[in-house]
Design a protein around this nucleic acid. Structure first.
Lengths: 343, 343
DNA sequence: CTGAAAGCGCTTACAG
DNA sequence: CTGAAAGCGCTTACAG
C-alpha cells in the first residue's frame, strides 16, 4: 500500500473476547465468565483473563451483552422542561443514584410546547430501556400501554397522572404544601389571599390551588382570587400587575412556583413600591436556591426533589409489582422567611 | 399450570424481524431492508413488511443494529456541574440538536469534587458511543488517548484543555469578555478595579482574569486586586466581604460568573449598605436569567451556550479530521445594565 | 429487487 | 471449573 496503513488491513477499534481468549489461552466463554460478577471461574483463569484483557485494552461490549440478556441496563429519562433548574436537580439526583445502582441513562428533552414524550418514547423502546422516567413530561395512554406490554417500568416524576397499569407516580405533597402556606399566611394576619397558578389544566396546579383555597375559606376568609401565571416569569408579572392594581388588592399572594413568586416580589417592589412582607405577603412553592437569597427571602414550601429521586430509584432498582401502580407523595417542608413577615 | 400464565410459556416482549418476516411472507433480510432508509426494496415488499410490523408492534432493536454496525448512534455526555443552571441549558441545547440529527444521548454526571469524567468514560466506551462531550468536566490524558485509539470524537465543552489528538474544545470568548468588561468599567469612570475568580487553576478563569487585569493596567490603572470566590455563592460572599471591608475598597468588582456577581451585589447592598452602580460597579460573566432581573440588573458578558452547542453538534454530526484538533472560541455579547451605571 | 448465510460480540445451558 | 455450541436480533456482501 502506497500510504501504509499500519500493518494489518484494518485494526479493529476494540478487541473482542475472542482476542483476549487467544492471548490468555482460554476459551471465549471463560473470558465472558471472568467479566461476569457471579460466574464460576477459577481464580487462576480469571487472573490470566484480566491480564490479557489489560494488555489488549479489552472491555466487554455492553451492546452485545444487552442484546443477549434482553435488558440493556439503560433507563430512559424524558425531561419536560430541561431549562428549569429544578429539573436539572432532579436529573442530577436521579443520575447519581442510578449510576451507583449500575444503571445508565438515556436522556431526551421533550418539546417545549406540550412536554409530550411520545416521540422519544418510541426511540427509547427501540433501545430496549429497562425503565422510563418522565420528569414533568406527558405520555399518551396508548404508549403507556405499550410500555406495559413491553415490560418497561414507567415512573412519572412530578406529574400526577391518570393511573395506568405499570405506571407509578412520584409527586411532591402539593395539597399539604398549599394548605401549609394558607395556614401560615392566615396565622401571620393576612386576610385577603390570592393565588397565581401555573397552568390551568395541570393537576399539580389544581392540587396546590384547591388545598390553598379550601383551607382559606374553611377558616372563614373570602375565597382567594385565582389568576393564571402560566408558570413563566412574564406570565407571573402580568398576573401580579393585575392583582396589585385593583382597588381592593390582596394582602398576600401565593404563587404556584418560586419563580413566579420572585417575579411577583419584583413587580410589587419595583413597580408598585410595595413593602413585601409588611404590606404584602408573598409565598412560593419549590424552595429553589434563589428563594433564600436576601433579595427575595421568600417563604415557600419545598419541593423535595432529592427524596423523590430516592423513591424513584428504589422503584427502579428493586423493580416493583407491575400490576399494582403506586402513587407516592413526598412531603416537603414549610420554609418561613421574610416575604411573609408583617413586623 | 395452576395459576395460568396466559397460554404460551413466555410471550416475548418484543417481536423480532423474523416474526415480521413470517407474517409478511418475506425473508428476514427484507424486513431489515424495509426499515433501512437507503436499502433496495420494492415498494410492494416494504408495504407488506410495514403492515405486518404494524400488526405485531415490531420496531427494530437498536441494540442489535448497533452491534452489527459497530456504531451505536449514541453520544456520551458527561456534565461536570449538573446543578448549575448554565449546564442544564447546554444539555438542552445539545439534546435538541442531537435528537434532530438522529443521535441519542447517554448522560453521566461527574463527581462534584473534581468534575472527573474518567469513571464514566469507561462505561461510555463500553457502550461504544460514537462521540463524547464533556461539559465542564475533566478527563485524564490517558483516557483521552484511549478514546482517540477507539475512534471516538471528544469535545470539551466550556473547558480549555491541553490539546490531545482527536479532541476539540469549544469555549466562550473568555479573553474578549474579560477585556470588554474592563473597557466598560473604565469608560464608566471606575478606577479601582477588583476581580473575583472561580478556581485558581482553571484556564477559563486565567483567561478571564488576565484579559481583565492586563487591559486595566495597560490603561494605566493600578493592578486590580484579585481574590478567590471558588465559583460558589458562599465563596463569593466571603470574597466580597473581604474586598469591601478594606480601608481603600475597590469601586468596581468583576466576578468570573454571574452567580458570584449576584452574591457580591447582595453583600454590598445588604451588609454594607452600598449603592450598587453609583458607589460600586459590579459585573459578571454568563448572562444567566437572573442577571436581567430588576433586583440585580447585572452588567455581564454573555456565555453563548446555544451558539456553542451549534458548533459542537456540527463537529459531531459531520465528523471531523481526527488528526487535527480544533479549538473554537465563540464570542458572547457585552450586556450593559444598571449594576455598572454611575449616574 | 430478493433470499440464504455469515457474522457482530456477547451469555448461557449442556456436557464433561 | 471449563469448552464447544447455540442463539440474541440485526446488517450486508454474495449470488441470483
Amino acid at each position: 500500500m502506497a500510504n501504509g496503513t499500519r500493518g494489518t488491513a484494518k485494526r479493529r477499534a476494540h478487541p473482542s473476547a475472542h482476542d483476549v481468549a487467544r492471548v490468555a489461552l482460554v476459551s471465549q466463554a471463560a473470558v465472558s465468565r471472568a467479566f461476569t460478577p457471579g460466574a464460576s471461574v477459577s481464580d487462576a483463569t480469571r487472573k490470566r483473563v484480566f491480564k490479557a484483557a489489560e494488555k489488549l485494552g479489552y472491555r466487554p461490549n455492553l451492546l452485545a451483552r444487552s442484546l443477549v440478556m434482553g435488558r440493556s441496563g439503560l433507563v430512559g429519562i424524558v425531561m419536560g422542561n430541561p431549562r428549569n433548574p429544578s429539573f436539572a436537580i432532579a436529573l442530577d439526583a436521579l443520575s447519581t443514584r442510578l449510576t451507583k445502582a449500575g444503571k445508565h441513562i438515556l436522556i431526551f428533552t421533550a418539546e417545549k410546547a406540550n412536554c409530550a414524550a411520545d416521540v422519544h418514547v418510541e426511540d427509547l423502546l427501540n433501545y430496549r430501556v429497562d425503565a422510563l422516567v418522565l420528569i414533568s413530561a406527558n405520555m399518551s395512554p396508548t404508549l403507556a400501554e405499550r410500555c406495559f406490554a413491553a415490560g418497561i417500568l414507567v415512573i412519572h416524576f412530578n406529574r400526577v397522572v391518570r393511573s395506568v397499569r405499570g405506571s407509578s407516580t412520584i409527586t411532591a405533597a402539593n395539597r399539604v404544601g398549599g394548605q401549609k402556606i394558607a395556614e401560615h399566611l392566615i396565622q401571620q394576619g393576612y386576610r385577603q389571599l390570592a393565588y397565581v397558578s401555573n397552568f390551568r389544566g395541570s393537576k399539580t396546579n389544581r392540587e396546590r390551588q384547591s388545598a390553598f383555597v379550601n383551607y382559606a375559606t374553611s377558616q372563614g376568609l373570602p375565597a382567594p382570587q385565582c389568576i393564571l401565571g402560566h408558570f413563566q416569569r412574564e406570565g407571573a408579572m402580568s398576573a401580579a400587575r393585575e392583582l396589585l392594581s385593583q382597588p381592593r388588592r390582596p394582602d398576600a399572594i401565593f404563587c404556584a412556583s418560586d419563580y413566579m413568586a420572585i417575579a411577583t416580589i419584583e413587580v410589587a417592589r419595583f413597580e408598585f413600591g410595595i413593602a413585601v412582607g409588611r404590606e404584602l405577603g408573598v409565598a412560593g412553592f419549590d424552595d429553589i436556591d434563589q428563594a433564600s437569597w436576601p433579595s427575595f427571602d421568600l417563604t415557600t414550601y419545598s419541593h423535595p426533589v432529592d427524596k423523590m429521586a430516592d423513591k424513584a430509584v428504589e422503584l427502579l432498582v428493586q423493580g416493583f409489582d407491575a400490576d399494582r401502580d403506586s402513587h407516592m407523595v413526598v412531603e416537603g417542608e414549610l420554609k418561613v422567611r421574610g416575604s411573609t413577615r408583617r413586623t
